[in-house]
Amino acid sequence: METRQQRKAAAQGAGPGDPRSPASLLEGTDRETLLNYYYQMVLIRYFEEKAGEMYTRARIGGYCHLNLGEEATVVGFCAGLEADDYVYTNYREHGYAICRGISPAVVMAELFGKKTGCSRGRGGSMHLFDLKRRFMGGYGIVGGQLPLAVGAAFALAYRGAREIVACQMGDGTTNGGPFHESLNLAKLYRLPVVFLIVNNQYGMGTRVDQGSAVPDLYRKACAYDMRSERVDGTDLLAVLEAVRTAARIAREEREPSLIEAVSYRFRGHSVVDPDRYRPEDEVRRWRERDPILLYATRLKEAGLMDEATRQELETRAQQEVEEAVRFAEESEFPSVEELYDFVYAGEGGR
């Protein structure tokens, strides 16, 4: 418990302008892994830019929320978990799905509504899912995934399993009932769950301090005496370390945690949002703190990534995204005859 209190104290001082240094993490982590993080960030960046493009080309319908600008949070969060942990997210989840091992092609196919999509074309952008990879879904209702994540953690605890559940959400979620009910239940039942608030500072057009009486979102955990901290969401390694620590505590101590990663989205709430509510200079300042550039600089400074490597990784990421688009384009739509499949389980799907 002492550790927890110290972490809490440390969290009080964290903020977007004051990223904690995770320099120590660089040690003991091999270069390939660190370069792979970079690759994943770039992959998400290209994927999301392409998704935006494909949306405007009408290949993608419905809503489409992008992770642009949040790549460090996405990759750091996923990297902090083990492969067999369970992940629940909200609807801004393309990057998480990809980082948890769903191929960009299958994600893009889902966005295109194709039968090869990870939800067989039934879910779309907001509802990516892959049971094998324990990616337990993107959810479109704000707060909806929290009780589910708590329940999954309940099942793990029920069985005495080793895995944990990680549950991502946006900043707006913390103002709703499900957030509080879920934190209470998780703490009450001592469930192995890590909550991650991606505080990209706006819930649609509402600034955090306009929606939350307590703008320091991580502090809301104190109502449930839950350990929590705030990290710089533009710092991949900071996020990674926070999640890894929380995951370990969940796994070993059966204690839930709340992490607030302060981040920023480079574009509007969704592809169709003209983004008129954010001050231009604010957007410019945050764009200058592009998490990919920050991480690239650190890798270069550490001598782990030269320009050629960077070029090569970026080219490969671009190719993978192009390949994803081609796969999605070439895939078939689900047959209309399958309309009633999967309404009910265990009855021929119907």
């Binding site: 999509g117 990870c118 939800s119 067989r120 074309g121 039934r122 879910g123 509802h127 899912f129 892959d130 049971l131 337990m136 879904g137 499949d341 999967f342 309404v343 009910y344 389980a345 265990g346 799907g349």
Partner: peptide, 9 residues
């Protein structure tokens, strides 16, 4: 069950 393509009852 439906929305995720029949993967999870």
């Amino acid at each position: 069950y439906y929305m995720f393509g029949g993967q999870c009852p």
